[in-house]
Nucleic acid binder design. Structure first.
Lengths: 153, 153
DNA sequence: CTTGTCGTCATTCTTTCGGGTGATTTTGCG
DNA sequence: CGCAAAATCACCCGAAAGAATGACGACAAG
């Protein structure tokens, strides 16, 4: 990301230099200022669009927390390797995984509590722990990450 | 969409006009040309970024890191997915599907609103409609049903 | 016996979701 | 042009979710 800003500034500086170099031509051509302005506008508009695409192509990178840099996980993310082979169990206990599974099926905490015959607070505790271990802030995100880690089908 | 281009051209024209109007000031300030060039560059860079976001956010191909709509066709062609699983588009509009997609990625309503440059209320309206059309009561359930209907990868 | 883990439950508090309703603006199409 | 669908935004309100604690019993390992 920093490289883009660098390139950006570099192009800007180059453009300024070129403008400075061709400064004396303003005396000759009458309306060259508009032409130059248009050129600059066009250039930077294209550049801006390109930049805009660049900086927004990974939209949830800002929200997505710690993703492992391991080659296995990357392979899973890219779909190269079937995810059931490598499951990144991040210290998630069986009970917690059970809750995560029910969450993925669209059940509410109350329904999960009723299913497992435990208190709703217990479900909340488990889910909170799962979220913490997965680095998720919402249950939908937990489901998404759970699938990435091969914990969920 | 056409309006944006229009606005774009309008702003450009206005800028040119302003430049023309302030043309005589170039005789006073020595390096104002660079300043003006920088201003133009900055303005159009921001504008370009904005435009780039505008023209690329409606189709979620650029923002969606996951497999696009052609994934199912590819999967069918590869024999991975049985062809009887046809996507049951239940009158869900593209925008609504886009919101559903972002929900499936674990984004909150606020984050979705920020991603799509709309109000949080709008996101809520869309999601409510999607839930209604899918028969879901929770977003996790909506995701689950969306996958069942072949609307989500 | 001490330590650590796991599962369980509670309380308080804040944030987020979701339903409901109404409104305006854009847009696509006949 | 005029209409209908889609998209946008606003407000209220209750329910659900989640964070931050603290606590207790069971159980296995050291």
């Amino acid at each position: 990301m920093k490289r883009h800003v660098l390139i950006y500034g570099l192009i800007g500086g180059t453009l300024i230099t070129i403008l400075q170099w061709t400064q004396y031509r303003f005396l000759v051509l009458e309306h060259s200022i508009e032409i130059y302005a248009g050129l600059i506008a066009l250039t930077f508009a294209v550049l801006g669009i390109w930049l805009g695409l660049r900086i927004t192509s990974p939209p949830q990178n800002t929200t997505a927390p710690k993703l492992p840099a391991t080659s296995e996980a990357n392979a899973v993310a890219l779909g190269v390797v079937p995810p059931h082979k490598i499951r990144d169990d991040r210290g998630i206990t069986p009970r917690e995984l059970e809750i995560l599974n029910l969450i993925a099926h669209g059940l509410s905490n109350r329904e999960i509590a009723a299913t497992l015959f435990v208190s709703e607070n217990t479900v909340k505790t488990h889910s909170s722990r799962v979220f913490d271990k997965l680095g998720a802030r919402r249950r939908t995100q937990a489901v998404q990450l759970g699938k990435q880690f091969g914990l969920l089908p």
